[in-house]
Design a protein around this nucleic acid. Structure first.
Lengths: 261, 261
DNA sequence: AAAATAGTGTCTCTGAGACACTATATA
DNA sequence: TATATAGTGTCTCAGAGACACTATTTT
């Protein structure tokens, strides 16, 4: 911000505490991860994937014993996004991961401690980041829950059920309309893996001709690219199947969708 | 929220003012309107439309004399959305209009008055609502500016340029991906009007076969519906053209887009 | 050979895109 | 009659959807 001298002088009679002010503005984070569990079968097969949410069991009032989103109060010297980033790092020990703003939760009475306005984020992190966290700080009870278990069976603190529900809706939208699937995949992946990741987050997604469409249609060509070696030969992998499958990677293209075209 | 007795008892030693707390959490609103100006031509023609933003000239420190978004501080007894709704009503005198959350602005130093975290909204209102406002309260200087004028030429208070830019990006996205165009149209409208509204908000939008596509394609049939009278006869209007044009209305369908299908 | 997954051939039908054409009303 | 806007005829080609088929590798 650029200001000139004149307007920068704060009037002597200006009092910031004239009105009741909030008691705190925390950032709470819905941390999603996609767990991968190898299946013990006779033949090679894709691992079972599951969308999970990380929660922390509260130890003190209010909602002691209930599960809650990780989060922390924002400080005056940082933006709310910075606070969320700091919190994410504290929980995972890692700087990376997708972190995105979700919304503000300000219903009066949502926090018995006072007038506390929460800013929610969601993060997509890798499973190992959370495991690291659990090892580092075993003073706090950390849990990884399937999204439906968290939403339907757990006793949650504050309005965190609502926040998790909103985050789930948003991640499903984003999974179909952006390329965040890449957050849950290695750099190079097969189309079956991609399909499985999409279906894990959005079970309703069904696309019988998925491979055909994604490879043959002009409009989709932009977002995926075949992986090739130095000589230009296409690379494939048979990690999860008998016949080896072509490897793909996301490009940096962000497709723009419209209902009118 | 349902709580049992036990956990609801606030510990005596709990002090909500242990830490520095924010000095206020306002809701600021980017109020968009689409002005319609009749053209004086020999033949009937569509009015010229323009996307405008309503701003208020600040009278006191800080940023006295600069243009700013309308807004007001949130009270303890209301949610931030309620505060925005209240503010919108104060400015327009009307309860209606599309009001949607935009995001939080919390960069340290953004407000010289202290630690003030703004929650931005955008609203789509009709022009007459703002005219009413201007008449009601002539103590305050109100201005309607073209979006590009506001972004590129005006001296704006706080970080309001950034907020307006973000709101502009969001309204453009929403215009293409949802049916908010209906906020800028009468209940019944012609396809030329719809096309013009879309182009006014998103100048890059070009669709030579617009009428053909929107009427002939299955996937689009869901969102628009022909207007008919009681006997089922299609209704048309020649308000803006020689030959009368079919009238349409939006259905309640919300199309779900995906980059993978 | 059987099984499992990857990927193709091929057919049908919808719809996008282009452009010239017709239709309706007004100056 | 000229003009302005609304809307259609028609052709070509891309691509969606279905389903049987082939390809590759492991058991």
């Amino acid at each position: 911000m650029i200001m000139n001298e004149e307007e920068e002088k704060q009037p002597k009679n200006y009092n910031t505490q004239k009105y009741r002010t909030p008691d705190g503005v925390p950032a709470d984070i819905v941390m999603f991860t996609l767990t991968k569990r190898e299946r013990k079968t006779v033949t090679k097969t894709l691992p079972i994937r599951e969308l999970k949410v990380m929660l922390i069991r509260r130890r003190s009032w209010p909602f002691a014993g209930k599960w809650a989103l990780p989060g922390g109060f924002c400080r005056e010297s940082e933006s709310i996004y910075d606070a969320a980033k700091r919190e994410l790092k504290e929980e995972t020990g890692v700087d990376g991961g997708h972190l995105e703003y979700l919304g503000v939760y300000s219903q009066p009475g949502r926090d018995p401690r006072g007038w506390i306005i929460s800013n929610a984020f969601f993060a997509l992190v890798e499973e190992w980041m959370l495991e690291q966290r659990q090892a580092a700080d075993d003073a706090e009870e950390v849990g990884l829950f399937g999204i439906h278990e968290a939403l339907e069976q757990l006793e949650l603190a504050f309005d965190h059920r609502e926040i998790i529900r909103d985050a789930y809706i948003k991640i499903q939208q984003k999974m179909l309309q952006t390329t965040i699937a890449k957050q849950f995949l290695p750099k190079h992946f097969t189309l079956s893996e991609l399909y499985q990741v999409i279906q894990t987050v959005v079970p309703e997604f069904k696309e019988p001709n998925f491979i055909r469409k994604i490879t043959s249609t002009q409009s989709r060509q932009g977002i995926l690219e075949e992986v090739r070696d130095e000589t230009g030969k296409k690379l494939s992998s048979n990690q999860y199947s008998q016949r080896s499958a072509q490897l793909y990677m996301f490009t940096d293209d962000v497709p723009l969708l419209s209902i009118y075209t």
